[in-house]
Design a protein around this nucleic acid. Structure first.
Lengths: 94, 94
DNA sequence: ATGATTGTTCGTAAATTTACGAACAAAAGT
DNA sequence: ACTTTTGTTCGTAAATTTACGAACAATCAT
């Protein structure tokens, strides 16, 4: 019923559908990368909850984590970030 | 903790976070307006489910309904549509 | 008045989301 | 080896989302 673009768009939008995740993405988009602990210090949520949000963003493809033991460095997944941007742009411009 | 823009952005994005709602918005954005029945004929969901999705889009401010008895004509809420577009544009361009 | 059309609201159920603390795993430092 | 640091996973609970059919309300046509 729904085409690839519609499904992808809904998926990306859903990932953006929470203030914590918006904040995380804005932070990553601004300063290239950061650690979970950096976010945890600022955000008023439990570490485990943040971890869940990061997992969702990872599963949506918008971020990626790189092990830099004992920490994990999170960055924007640039390819998918660009795809989400393009899909949204097209969505609003049709 | 979160500012107005982050909260609004998350709210709009959440409203876009389902294929049915993407489809509805694309349809409305293309052809100015349409009736619930027009959508119901095409979409593989119950009328009541569609009604719920329309309600969510209405509550998010992205669409508005006008009574044209016995039907309801749904249209894009242009002001909020533009706001969502601007917020998303700014989000990806920071 | 009666019946048909249109779409919402209600009641309900299953799945998903959001949240927390506790327990756990992996690696680095001592 | 042992402790500390970092972050995930587990178990759990409450709230929200998604979905359906049945009942309802409002208007139009007969």
């Amino acid at each position: 019923m729904f085409n690839e673009q519609q499904t992808k768009l809904a998926r990306y939008a859903k990932a953006l559908g929470h203030p914590v995740r918006i904040y995380v993405l804005q932070t990553l988009a601004k300063q290239t990368c950061c650690y979970s602990g950096d976010l945890s210090e600022v955000l008023p949520i439990a570490k485990s909850t943040l971890s869940q949000h990061l997992k969702e963003l990872k599963e949506a493809g918008l971020i990626q984590g790189e092990i830099e033991a004992p920490r994990i460095k999170y960055c924007i997944n640039k390819a998918n970030w660009a795809e989400a941007q393009d899909l949204l742009k097209a969505f609003f411009e049709d």
